[in-house]
């Protein structure tokens, strides 16, 4: 299954971005092949509608889970209807590599 993680940068040492819609980068991790893909978020500076546009990006990659610090009201209902699991982790210091380790174990 593919997992999307919001990240503050495009390396494994970057930390978890606490915002979903305006995060810097999405990390798409495939738990079966262990493949990691970094997708820059074009909506990071968007005035409005960043949330739904970001949902489209991760949904088009076929992810089953999304990990972020927070999800807005509109995003929750969108992910609910797309049957994508949301995981809220309120630890801004957490590195992407640590989260991937947690998923693997």
């Amino acid at each position: 299954m593919k997992v999307a993680i919001t990240s503050t940068g495009n390396t494994l040492e970057s930390t978890l971005d606490q915002r979903f819609g305006r995060c810097t980068c999405f990390v798409i991790y495939n738990t079966e092949t262990k493949g990691i893909e970094f997708v820059p978020n074009p909506n990071r500076d968007a005035q409005e509608g960043a949330g739904p546009a970001s949902v489209q990006i991760v949904a088009s990659r076929g992810v089953g889970k999304v990990i972020s610090g927070e999800f807005g009201f509109k995003i929750k209902s969108l992910f609910d209807s797309l049957k994508i699991q949301m995981i809220v982790l309120k630890e801004p210091e957490k590195r992407i590599s640590e989260i991937i380790d947690m998923l693997d174990n």
Binding site: I67, F79, D80, L82, K83, I84, Q85, M86, I87, V88, L89, K90, E91, M102
Partner: peptide, 10 residues
């Protein structure tokens, strides 16, 4: 254990 919140879409 890890202090995360998660939902159950299925």
């Amino acid at each position: 254990r890890c202090g995360c919140y998660f939902n159950n879409p299925e």
